[in-house]
Write a protein that binds this DNA or RNA. Structure first.
Lengths: 129, 129
DNA sequence: CGCTTGATCAATCAAATGGTTGATTAAGAG
DNA sequence: CTCTTAATCAACCATTTGATTGATCAAGCG
């Protein structure tokens, strides 16, 4: 996957949506997001509830960071991880974009069925396929 | 991977969320979702815009189906694929759940900052989990 | 300075994934 | 029945990923 497939050379690197959805596809990373929603935390704090090493958690955070979902700052030798709520909102925006289209289409179809419209009008409206 | 092993009982089995986010992590599958938002379609119709075989598209649809994002029915020898808007809504619901928590926390923090709080203390206030 | 803590880097390994080609099933059409 | 179309199944290959262990780096602390 991730191959160009179009010859235009535009899709060279996986975009932010790829990384963001991929990041949330893992239960450990989702748990990290859940934890971070309540406040910033360090790698060690995040690693504690799980039966995986800190190195693994560090990698997970790298994934979340490259997906733009979290940011990291410096506080002495600690590197607190911060959840970016705006990035989450961009995800829901993408999903809703198509969800709303599908729902409005469903509502229109529902109306047609309720109104018992003439076959010709139905055929017209059905060109949205 | 995908192992809970934490005993906290948060995420146990290969969840629907896993599959759903994983499904949307692929640009081809997102394009399929975008196309399906405008109406049901067959494998061949979906495969046409892409430089991949119909078998590959069939696999993508299987992934989307196991993620609960689409359903398939029978129409003679055709098997139209249908987008499940409710499944998309469940995804946004999960994201928003934590996005809203993070945002409300940010607003509280914002209020604290407005009350003349130095950046160092900001990190300490972060302990309001 | 050496020592401890927090975090990352590096090499490695098993398992999963995306895609392909080729064969096969399901349902109609001639 | 034979042929065509739609779609899936099956075997296979290349790449990627998650996780581990061991070493390394960075920043205080005694």
């Amino acid at each position: 996957m991730t191959r160009d497939a179009s010859g235009s050379g535009l899709d060279r690197s996986p975009d932010t949506l790829d990384r963001a959805f991929m990041a949330l596809a893992d239960p450990v990373r989702r748990a990290i997001v859940a934890r971070l929603s309540r406040g910033d935390a360090t790698v060690n704090e995040l690693a504690e509830p799980f039966a995986i090493t800190k190195q693994a958690v560090s990698k997970h955070i790298q994934v979340l960071e490259q997906a733009g979902l979290v940011t990291r700052s410096r506080d002495a030798q600690r590197r607190p991880v911060h959840l970016d709520a705006a990035a989450l909102e961009r995800l829901t925006a993408w999903i809703d974009q198509y969800r709303l289209i599908a729902e409005s289409r469903f509502r229109r179809l529902d109306q047609l069925l309720a109104n018992d419209t003439s076959p010709q009008e139905q055929a017209k409206k059905e060109e949205l396929k």
